[in-house]
């Protein structure tokens, strides 16, 4: 089965490990992620002002591409891309006037009717592939490790685009349990990592990383699993900065859920892009 797939910028650069592991895993499950032709940047953050339509053009244009290429749904991996595309689509379906304006602005494209479904890979795994089916394909026992699932913000908020309950999500836990992995009850799984403040207010991100990773370790996690390249960067790369400030701090690997899936489903670890992970998840790589 083929599903249109929107990568976004970072999946092609720093988060290539996210993309390649997802491709491997989906292939193994009998799905092909078909990269959308001529995709453009989604804008990364959804524009929130009532009079700002121009910034909604970029995400909508990607959905037009899906239509043009004969699709009616598109799956994303990056939580930020998911959020932006989905919010734009929800807005597009709620405001007829804005829809007309945006359509007339994009005058070289076909008119978009708001009818492309924006999905995140996690929901595809649950609703189309089925966690039961994934469970059947597990070949590596991972019952010796404890995982802290980390959702971040943009899969869960705002409520109009949430893939699960904002306060007590369970989709990632369910997936991990299907993989035979034990999860910790992680209160910080939906707490913000500090996001783009990593550029200009790095102190904030260091503080967040210290707290989030610290609590995960306190609660006995061996690895943190996430779905957002920026969360992954902040929680992993910034651990170095944390360590500088708090020498007693112990590092913890932060990987994409697709990488963990790959390990469980038996994809050779060298094809899961661990070389791009700064803190190597040795517990997984030495299986």
């Amino acid at each position: 089965m083929k599903i249109f797939y929107y990568p976004g910028c970072t999946l092609k650069t720093q988060a290539r490990n996210f993309e390649c592991s997802a491709m491997e895993v989906m292939k193994l499950l009998g799905y092909e992620l078909v990269e959308l032709n001529r995709w453009n940047c989604c804008g990364t953050v959804y524009s929130l002002a009532s009079d700002d339509l121009i910034h909604k053009v970029a995400p909508i244009r990607n959905l037009v591409r899906v239509k043009e290429q004969g699709g009616d749904k598109v799956v994303t991996l990056c939580a930020m891309c998911y959020n932006t595309l989905k919010q734009a689509n929800v807005f597009f379906n709620s405001d007829q006037e804005a829809r007309d304006k945006i359509n007339s602005f994009m005058d070289t494209e076909i008119d978009y009717e708001g009818d492309v479904e924006v999905l995140h890979l996690l929901t595809v795994l649950r609703d189309e592939v089925g966690f039961d089916n994934i469970s059947k394909k597990v070949v590596r026992k991972l019952n010796h490790i404890k995982v802290a699932p980390y959702y971040g913000c943009l899969l869960l908020r705002p409520s109009t685009v949430a893939i699960d309950d904002a306060e007590n999500p369970s989709i990632m836990e369910e997936l991990l349990h299907a993989l035979g992995v034990e999860t910790i009850d992680f209160p910080y799984r939906n707490e913000c990592c500090g996001t783009y403040n990593t550029v200009s207010a790095v102190d904030l991100v260091i503080d967040r990383t210290y707290r989030i990773v610290g609590l995960a370790r306190n609660l006995g996690a061996d690895v943190i699993v996430t779905s957002c390249p920026l969360c992954q960067f902040n929680l992993e790369v910034r651990q170095k900065d944390v360590k500088e400030r708090f020498p007693e701090f112990e590092q913890l690997p932060v990987i994409y859920f697709t990488q963990l899936m790959g390990v469980a489903l038996g994809v050779p670890t060298e094809r899961l892009g661990f070389e791009l992970n700064h803190i190597k998840p040795k517990v997984l790589m030495e299986l």
Partner: peptide, 15 residues
């Protein structure tokens, strides 16, 4: 060079 693209784009968009 170190931060991901999404961080830069978001930072410029917001700030």
């Amino acid at each position: 060079v170190s931060v991901p693209q999404i961080a830069l784009v978001a930072e410029f968009r917001k700030h």
